[in-house]
Design a protein around this nucleic acid. Sequence first.
DNA 1: ATCCAAACCGACTCGTGGGTCGGTCAAACG
DNA 2: CGTTTGACCGACCCACGAGTCGGTTTGGAT
Lengths: 204, 204
Amino acid sequence: MEMTLKRRETMHRLCGKGLEIFSEKGYYNTSLDDILTELSLSKGAFYHHFKSKEDYFINIVQNLIVQKVYALLIEPLDTDENPLPVIIESLENALEPGKKNEMAYGFMLNDFLTEFNKRNEEICGYLKNIISVWEVNLVAVLKRGKLDGHIARHVDCEGTATYIIASYLGMRSLMTDSSNRQLKYQYIQQLKQYFKSISATQTA
Amino acid sequence: MEMTLKRRETMHRLCGKGLEIFSEKGYYNTSLDDILTELSLSKGAFYHHFKSKEDYFINIVQNLIVQKVYALLIEPLDTDENPLPVIIESLENALEPGKKNEMAYGFMLNDFLTEFNKRNEEICGYLKNIISVWEVNLVAVLKRGKLDGHIARHVDCEGTATYIIASYLGMRSLMTDSSNRQLKYQYIQQLKQYFKSISATQTA
DNA sequence: ATCCAAACCGACTCGTGGGTCGGTCAAACG
DNA sequence: CGTTTGACCGACCCACGAGTCGGTTTGGAT
């Protein structure tokens, strides 16, 4: 059991640093040595724990990234308030750079999605799943908003969710050089504008 | 002069096929041989015309991609009508797969942007320039829309342009497997909803 | 016919990076 | 103590792809 602990700890360190560097430089542009050097580990150590770079990244996706998406984008939705401001707040928060122990600019769902499109169908599938879970939750929360009288009845919740996700992903493409408070501000403002147009009380 | 013609023709073939395959598989995932094989050309021929893969791609960006963005997204804006439907139409058209002699799904501005972020600053700069030109034109056309009484006076044109661009780029991330009529339809619908909220005549 | 230069060929170099493998070390077990 | 086992080491292998270079072909000019 002592051994298992050691194993877990090393794997955990590897995944953490991996997510950090992959987010910075991209998956294909990061060599295993880039990561191993920073952790003072060897190739041997790596392949003792993971069977390939791909396996390693899938591990990162299914543990760390899933977890972060839940924490930042999904769990915040779980309230009884008007969903619209809650969604805004979660997005605003997710676009915030340097969140505590996380890497700058949150994580790079869009970057990874784009990187694996047409290159690695399996990983792409996992990433799309994450987006899909997010979408499902957005739709649910929007529908609840309808029932609670916060959102106009004519609204297409699926379409709205898609639109929110698309604009969020696109923002991540635009916000490349850091400190893009301006861009983020514009985005949030326009999102509010859009939300006003689908809320039940047009003037609220 | 005859020589120069031959040269131009070969370079043109190279760039055309290059854009096609780079769009499909990405820049870093495409080897020169992938392209050269399809054209039955050799390494030697390639390096006779371009000094590097990077130089080659810059050529593609500054000729073909710029040209396509102008044709699909910028020139259509140049009318005297209400800008909002015109913008919608241009985006709808740009998201249309298999446009005539173009590759499926138009071109991959977002994909390239993401791919070169943090990897090649120079190319990234050229791509951002293109987006920037698009933005400037959007802003101009929106401002004109205000003057002409199509768009409400309170609207932040820069913010709106950013928002349009972000959502468009994001859609390109989501529309991976072909025949996503559904996604496209949802997007256009929501965009119309948003546009209604910034137009001068709320009910139109 | 000869020549020249531009277009083109393709085998080669060389760095990079994923993955392998025989070995070392240290802790646990008997 | 010996033995075993799991964590880890690092030199090595190999494929791949960008870029090189000496040579060949081609077509227009003299």
